[in-house]
Design a protein around this nucleic acid. Structure first.
Length: 927
RNA sequence: GGGCUCGUAGCUCAGUGGAAGAGUGCCUCCUUCGCGAGGAGGAAGCCACGGGUUCAAAUCCCGUCGAGUCCA
């Protein structure tokens, strides 16, 4: 990146000089003429530990001084409320990872104006990339607050402010806190993230990076002229001040504690230390802890141990317990935010991330012998956060339920896992293998969720009675991850809408009559263009596919061409231009068409769409505030909606949702749809409006039911009152994934038809059984019981008959060279029955060949008495017989079975069998 | 969104194409003053469901339903 980018007046005018770091070679700006390094770890130690940089402040104090500093500075930033930690408005990330993420992609790209400009915010963020190193490094957090002030500038427009003021404010804020300004360095470091990039200054003092000042003005572009890290970028139409001040870092710097955790969570850590029975090493080994903390940013653990003159093992023993406690303290704060903001633990998407963190903490609590329930620790975190984030308290009940439910599930998984591991270990012991192979460990983790540490614990447990070794490679979890990333290779798909987009760019947006006249079915319009089999009109009633609502169908009639009619089979919207795909034929520009939409289809879609909003509303009422739409599909006959929920929906809950939904219908509430300013709508209604995804654009269509019982951003067609929906019938609920339930329902006439269908099924069933409808359940149960009884009785009788027939067959025995052979055809007999007879007869020293002859198939059973087992193989004998029957067979040497389809050859087959027996026995006689 | 695993007696699970099994629990009897324990016998299965392949499927293939788990 060009050094000219960092040619900032403020720095030059305030006694800064640009230097090159002796250790890492990066360029930095400093007031200190003697400074030789950039000041960042690892080029410098954490010199602030035990030696705070400025007056001690709490997190609340730091946050407030930051927000008010920028509120009252010359540019008068607007203070914004925090956004959720779940990035519902984005489809590329699950969690909110930075304050700028709130404004991506529409604000940063310039498509939507910022909610305020400039603005200041303290945004709780979650990053789980460094999960493994949390607690160990002393500075990594999964949940942190990024304080940021942002200015959104547009090229050619009025500039709010850019680099100069950004640096000036940063310098001013640090001075305001009381930082020794000679110790501050601004390090040049190009920034890249989320498809954007730009020059950046890292703000560092005493080895600690406190803030990053990003000047975002580049975006990813294959033909871009600027290259960073092998990717090509080009200048954007906007240029944005994106700053990130680490709230926790400031608190830490103000306290000078060994780790950021000690600064942020002193009370929680104290509780955990007490419960674990350990002592905080700051009490037992203060010198080692402080030295280690100072060096940890700059050196590896081996080097530190070396420098402190103790063994690595010793150092680890001192540090590891407290590191685990640090991690628990961090993770529980992360969970407090995730769960309060509505994440439902699950096995997919953001829910999986919540479960990942939950299970880590369960493991850590267990390993430390801490008996405090996890939900209590999360509640402790909420207690300290409630002053600044009162909204967290609303979720306390649900969090307690969720966490204890997750705990129970995890215990079950482990209990089940223990059995699996023991069985497997016994298997290896039997095979006299010394070790459980790595691929088995990976399999246990991947398939059953059993971490290798747990496998080791179970296997090494004396009680298990096994002594197989378990070797866990250091990079185990990355091995698992890389295994999965390989699976993903090759699945690249590039949609080819770009070509159409290119052509539609010059065409004005289609006027959307379906919003203006929701109940109209006929319209007149002029053809603007005809592209790839699609007609583009100046205005249309045809609703394009979107938001889970299918496109309208219908026809376009050309009056000027003898009423030639084009059938519209699909409708899509590309950047405001609506494309009517027609079945065949073409149309010329300027032609006037009269359009007609399939009214019944549209009405059914409209009812189902409004019903969807009603059902979500009812589900949220019944199941709780964490209910979030995770997908939806509307049709003519039925619709479905996927919602986030942590349990299966019970029958009672399903009925309650259905009743409530129908009540909303009967109350005949108004459904209002109107375009509103996006930022205003977000502030007024919250992010709850983005149930069905995030629409682009400055103005978004908001659909509200009644007194705002339900408010959603939605582009679909809707009834004007809930009464128009008609009855809503829930058909079924299904579990799509853990944590996501699907509800299927019908609305309007479709619902009545579904009810009739169900009724018909019940009536028919009842009439088959000749019972009144209300006795159906008991009748079915009785019939099923009787059927089972009779089946058993039948089996028993067959066995009895077989038993009795044995005597009869014995009389039919023929003698082949001294061997008693029973070769009989039994009409109608089944294999099972014949097996019983054969096995009994062979015990009495008879050789049997039985053929059961049925309509289209003959089955063969043969048994050989023990004394003949060396001469005659029942399996071979059956094979020979079945060969003739056009089939095959097999089994054990003493008794075997088979069959064939050529029933006319039964006699022939039997003779073949007898001949074979004769042959085999004669050989014996010759011996 | 993608991958892997599982569904067999009330429960925990064996069973890799050839007669549905074990342990535990349950019932009856014996032993005991009674309990625990022991002995003998017995009942208990739509092998999740629907298709397919095969002479033959709990077992192999496809689909559905249900459960678990990992990754993005």
């Amino acid at each position: 990146m060009d050094s000219e980018e960092y040619n900032i007046e403020y720095l030059k005018e305030n006694g800064f000089t640009r230097k090159k770091c002796e250790r890492c070679g990066s360029h930095f700006w400093t007031r200190d003429h003697d400074r030789k390094t950039c000041g960042d770890a690892p080029c410098e130690f954490y010199s602030f530990i035990g030696n705070p940089i400025f007056k001690e402040r709490s997190a609340d104090e730091i946050r407030e001084s930051f927000l008010s500093f920028f509120e009252h500075c010359p540019h008068k930033h607007t203070r914004m409320k925090r956004y959720p930690v779940v990035a519902r408005w984005r489809d590329d990330i699950y969690l909110n990872i930075a304050s700028i993420a709130n404004f991506q992609p529409f604000v940063t790209s310039g498509k939507v104006p910022p909610p305020a400009n400039p603005l200041v915010i303290s945004q709780p963020c979650i990053r789980l990339e460094d999960l493994e190193s949390i607690g160990k490094t002393g500075r990594h957090l999964t949940a942190f607050e990024m304080m940021g002030h942002h200015a959104f500038n547009k090229r050619g427009g009025e500039e709010i402010y850019w680099k100069n003021d950004t640096v000036k404010y940063c310098d001013g804020f640090l001075r305001h806190l009381g930082v020794d300004m000679d110790s501050v360095t601004y390090k040049e470091a190009p920034w890249v993230g989320g498809g954007n990039a730009g020059p950046c200054l890292e703000v560092i003092t005493n080895g600690l990076e406190l803030a990053t000042l990003v000047f975002m003005d580049l975006e990813l572009s294959p033909q871009g002229e600027i290259s960073i890290n092998g990717q090509r970028y080009t200048k954007m139409d906007t240029y944005i001040v994106d700053t990130g001040y680490g709230l926790e870092r400031f608190v830490w710097a103000s306290k000078g504690t060994p780790t950021v955790y000690d600064a942020m969570f002193p009370d929680v850590i104290k509780e955990l230390v007490n419960a674990s029975g350990f002592e905080h090493p700051l009490e037992t080994h203060p010198a080692i802890i402080i030295q280690n903390a100072r060096l940890s940013g700059a050196m590896k653990r081996e080097e530190i141990a070396n420098k402190l003159g103790i063994s690595l093992k010793n150092l680890k023993n001192i540090l590891e317990p407290i590191e685990t406690i640090y991690a628990i303290a961090d993770h529980t704060k992360c969970l407090a935010f995730m769960l309060a903001d509505g994440v439902v633990p699950s096995n997919a998407k953001e829910g999986y991330l919540a479960r990942l963190v939950l299970r880590r903490v369960f493991r850590m609590l267990k390993s430390m012998g801490i008996g405090i329930p996890l939900e209590d620790i999360v509640l402790m975190q909420i207690e300290t956060l409630r002053k600044s984030f009162p909204e967290l308290e609303k979720s306390v009940d649900r969090i307690v339920e969720l966490v204890s439910l997750e705990h129970r599930r995890y215990d079950e998984t482990l209990l089940k896992g223990e059995r699996i591991i023991r069985q497997m270990a016994r298997g290896y012991k039997r095979k006299e293998e010394q070790k459980i192979p790595l691929d088995m460990l990976i399999n246990l983790y991947d398939t059953h969720g059993l971490p290798p540490e747990f496998v080791k614990e179970v296997v090494s447990n004396q009680e298990a009675g096994v002594d197989v070794e378990v070797d866990i490679p250091e990079n185990f979890y990355s091995l698992v991850a890389s295994m999965h990333s390989e699976e993903r290779k090759g699945e690249m798909e590039q949609p080819i809408v770009e070509k159409i987009e290119e052509k539609t760019k010059s065409i004005p947006a289609t006027q959307k009559l379906y919003y203006e006249k929701p109940s109209a079915v006929d319209f007149e319009a002029t053809v603007l263009d005809f592209v790839d089999g699609s007609v583009i009109l100046d205005k249309t009633l045809f609703f394009p596919e979107g938001g889970g609502q299918p496109a309208d169908t219908g026809s376009l009639t050309l009056k000027e061409e003898n009423n030639r009619t084009l059938k519209v089979i699909d409708v899509q919207e590309v950047e405001g231009v609506i494309l009517h795909k027609i079945e065949n034929g073409g149309v010329s520009k300027g032609a006037v068409v009269s359009g007609h939409i399939d009214a019944a289809r549209r009405i059914a879609h409209t009812k189902h769409h409004s019903a969807t909003h009603v059902v979500v509303c009812a589900a949220r009422e019944v199941l709780g505030g964490h209910i979030w739409q995770a997908g939806a599909q509307k049709g003519e006959k039925r619709a479905r909606i996927d919602i986030t929920h942590f349990k299966r929906i019970s029958d009672a809950e399903r009925r309650e949702i259905e009743m409530l939904a129908n009540r909303i219908v009967m109350e005949d509430k108004e459904i209002k749809a109107s375009f509103e300013d996006r930022n205003e709508a977000e502030q007024k209604y919250g992010f709850r409006i983005y149930q069905g995804g995030v629409p682009p654009g400055k103005r978004i269509r908001i659909v509200r039911i009644g007194e705002d019982e339900d408010v959603q951003a939605c582009a679909g067609t809707h009834c004007s009152k809930t009464g128009e929906i008609g009855p809503i019938k829930i058909l079924r609920t299904e579990r799509i994934q853990d944590g996501i339930e699907r509800i299927e329902y019908s609305a309007g006439e479709a619902a009545v038809k579904e009810i009739q269908l169900l009724e018909e099924l019940i009536r028919k069933s009842a009439s088959v059984l000749r019972v009144p409808v209300h006795k159906l359940p008991s009748a079915v149960e009785r019939f099923f019981e009787e059927w089972k009884q009779l089946r058993k009785e039948n089996e028993r009788l067959r066995a009895e008959i077989a038993e009795q027939r044995i005597g009869l067959w014995k009389e039919h025995a023929r003698d082949i060279r001294g061997v008693s052979v029973i070769a009989e055809v039994l009409p109608g007999a089944d294999t099972k029955e014949m097996m019983k007879i054969a096995s009994q007869l062979s015990k009495d020293d008879f050789l049997t060949i039985l053929i059961g002859k049925r309509e289209k198939h003959a089955s063969v059973v043969s048994s050989v008495p023990v004394y003949l087992r060396n001469e005659v193989n029942a399996s071979a004998l059956v094979k020979r017989v079945c060969e003739v029957l056009g089939g095959s067979g097999g089994g054990k040497a003493e008794i075997a079975q088979g069959g064939g389809t050529k029933i006319e050859k039964v006699k022939e087959a039997m003779e073949a069998g007898i001949t074979l027996v004769d042959d085999l026995i004669s050989k014996k006689v010759q011996k």
